[in-house]
């Protein structure tokens, strides 16, 4: 199949960017979206032009690196990540807009690559349980009810891609933060730092400039890891309780 691409090209963080028309020719239906871009890049390179820069690594939907907005939708018209999107979802001759994830907290680095280091900083603020290597007790000394373990796993499955932020009209990171706070709050191991974790992560999220949640729930709709919006409700609860405790102490 042949496709008309409109691709965001931007030299670096400081330069302005624009949508550039690029033709994608002879694309097999069985190719993935990123393999389609590989083919386009091969053509560009042979012509002596610079290939389109985009982020990717595992190409299996688990590392969270790929981050394209396709026709305005983070990860495009599939329920998974960009790398798991296949060209058979498109029609021959279609025009496709390819842009980076859009959010003020994710500045463009080049072309389709954005800087998501704000996510790391939020995790550094409190997304952990203090457990020095060598200090752990036997794992089965602390039984965890299966229901709690399963719910924790559901939240822990977040791949940190940032589609939730890119989809949200407010660029809110509540789904991302809620996933980590829920994961750790649901486990007995996570109790000691439960209060400080919620406070620190939310504060850092605000400082980084992510917006508030006003329940559009676009985040849940685009999440390739199926993180449920209920983690946002839990985050709100955790944060409220933590703020009260903080105020009293």
């Amino acid at each position: 199949m042949n496709l008309h691409l409109k691709v965001w090209r931007q030299k670096d963080a400081k330069s302005p960017g624009q949508l550039v028309p690029i033709e994608a020719r002879n694309i097999p239906e069985d190719a993935s979206f990123l393999e389609m871009l590989d083919i386009v890049n091969d053509d560009l390179t042979v012509k002596g032009e610079e290939p389109i820069a985009f982020d990717h690594d595992c190409r299996e939907g688990i590392c969270g690196t790929c981050s394209l907005s396709i026709n305005g939708l983070p990860h495009g018209p599939s329920e998974t990540t960009t790398c798991q999107l296949y060209m058979r979802k498109f029609k021959d001759g279609e025009t496709i807009h390819v842009e980076p994830f859009r959010a003020k907290t994710f500045p463009v680095v080049r072309d389709l690559i954005v800087d998501r280091s704000a996510f790391d900083r939020i995790q550094q603020a409190g997304g952990f349980i203090t457990a020095r290597a060598g200090s752990a007790q036997d794992a089965n000394c602390l039984p965890v009810p299966k229901v709690a373990a399963d719910a924790a796993m559901e939240a822990a499955a977040c791949i940190g891609c940032g589609a939730c932020v890119a989809a949200c009209p407010n660029a809110s990171a509540m789904l991302f933060v809620g996933a980590k706070v829920s994961h750790l709050a649901l486990l007995p191991q996570g109790q000691a730092e439960r209060t400080s974790r919620a406070l620190k992560m939310v504060r850092t999220m605000d400082e980084e400039g992510f917006g508030n949640c006003s329940n559009y729930l676009e985040c849940e709709a685009v999440c390739p890891a199926d993180i449920p919006a209920s983690v946002i409700a839990r985050l709100n609860r955790e944060y409220t309780v933590a703020s009260c405790k903080d105020a009293v102490c």
Binding site: I129, S135, Q137, L142, K146, M153, Q189
Partner: peptide, 17 residues
């Protein structure tokens, strides 16, 4: 032991082990 202490949500049986 180390991973469980960190909160790695390994699969569990109904009894919690």
């Amino acid at each position: 032991d180390q991973c469980v202490a960190q909160g790695v949500p390994f699969a569990r049986e109904y009894g919690g082990l």
